[in-house]
C-alpha cells in the first residue's frame, strides 16, 4: 500500500567532488521492515547514507528521494532529523567542550520546538536520559562526558544507539555499525535496535560484514555494487555472499 511507504529512492545519482559514486539507486522501504544494504568496499554504501542524511560534501545529480511523501533532498539535515530520520554514523565525530547531557537536551528540545511542542522540563529530561542510558547499558557517568571525546570504538557506537533511543526516529539508518565493535558491544547495539523496533518504524542496516546480521534479522537484503543495487532478495542472500563473495552476485 502506498501509505505504508516510508522511503522511496528512485534513480538516485550522486557525486563527491568530481567522482560519480551512486549511478542510479532504487530502493523502497515500508513500515515495519528491516532492510540490509551490503556491498564491497567502494560500492557507495557510505555515500548512500551521507546523501540520505544531507551531508554538504555530496551532490545529487539525478533522481528523487521522498520520505513520508516529502521531498527529502530539499530538506536541511536538521529538518530531516525532525521529520524522523536518524543516521548512526560509521565514524562519529568528537565534540570537545559539549557534554552528552547538553548535546541531547539541545537536540531533544530543538526537535520539540520544531514540532510545536513545549520543551521538556529539566526533571523530565533527566528521567528520559536515565531510562535510555539504561536501555543501551551506558554507564551513568557518560552523561557528563564530552561527546565522543576519548571514547573507544564500541563506546562511540553505543552512544549512537543511545541517541537513537532518545530521538525516537521513524527511519533509522545504521552505517557500518558493526565495524570496530567487540561481540558484547555488538549484542548490546543489536538489542537496543531490536527493542526500538515497531510495526510503524523501519531500519536500514548498511554493512560490509555479516556479523551484525546474526543479531538483527533482515526482511529484505540488497546488494550495492558500483553505485547501483544489483540484487534484492530475502535473508538467504546473506549466506550466499558469505560463502561465495560479492563476485557471485550480478
Amino acid at each position: 500500500m502506498e501509505n505504508d511507504i516510508l522511503l522511496k529512492i528512485e534513480g538516485l545519482r550522486a557525486r563527491v567532488e568530481d567522482k560519480e559514486i551512486l549511478k542510479g539507486v532504487d530502493l523502497t522501504v515500508r513500515k515495519g521492515e528491516t532492510h540490509v544494504v551490503m556491498g564491497p568496499n567502494g560500492a557507495g554504501k557510505s555515500t548512500l547514507s551521507s546523501v540520505l542524511a544531507g551531508k554538504p560534501q555530496y551532490t545529487v545529480t539525478d533522481g528523487a528521494v521522498t520520505f513520508m511523501g516529502r521531498d527529502l533532498l530539499k530538506m536541511s539535515p536538521e529538518e530531516r532529523s525532525w521529520a524522523g530520520i536518524f543516521l548512526s554514523f560509521q565514524y562519529p565525530v568528537e565534540i570537545p567542550g559539549v557534554s552528552i547531557t547538553n548535546f541531547m537536551k539541545t537536540a531533544v528540545n530543538s526537535r520539540r520546538k520544531a514540532l510545536g511542542e513545549e520543551p521538556l522540563t529539566a526533571a523530565a529530561f533527566l528521567k528520559l536520559m536515565k531510562e535510555k542510558m539504561a536501555l543501551v547499558q551506558m554507564r551513568q557517568e557518560f552523561a557528563k562526558r564530552e561527546v565522543n571525546v576519548g571514547f573507544s570504538g564500541g563506546e562511540k557506537k553505543r552512544n549512537e544507539i543511545f541517541q537513537m533511543a532518545m530521538l525516537d526516529p521513524v527511519l533509522s539508518i545504521l552505517d557500518e555499525t558493526d565495524s570496530g565493535l567487540d561481540v558484547d558491544a555488538l549484542r548490546i547495539v543489536a538489542e537496543g535496535v531490536n527493542t526500538l523496533k515497531t510495526p510503524e518504524k523501519a531500519t536500514i542496516v548498511i554493512t560490509h560484514y555479516q556479523r551484525l546480521l546474526d543479531y538483527i534479522v533482515p526482511d529484505i537484503v540488497h546488494v550495492l555494487k558500483d553505485g547501483r543495487i544489483v540484487k534484492t532478495a530475502g535473508k538467504e542472500l546473506v549466506a550466499q555472499i558469505e560463502e561465495q563473495g560479492y563476485d557471485s552476485i550480478n
Partner: peptide, 26 residues
Amino acid sequence: NEDEQFYMRSRGIPENEAKVLQMVSF
C-alpha cells in the same frame, strides 16, 4: 569545525544553535 556542525544538525540541532554550542565550548 564543519563536521561537528553536520553531526549536530543531523540530530536536529539547527545550524545557528550548533555554532553557538561550538563558540560557548571554545
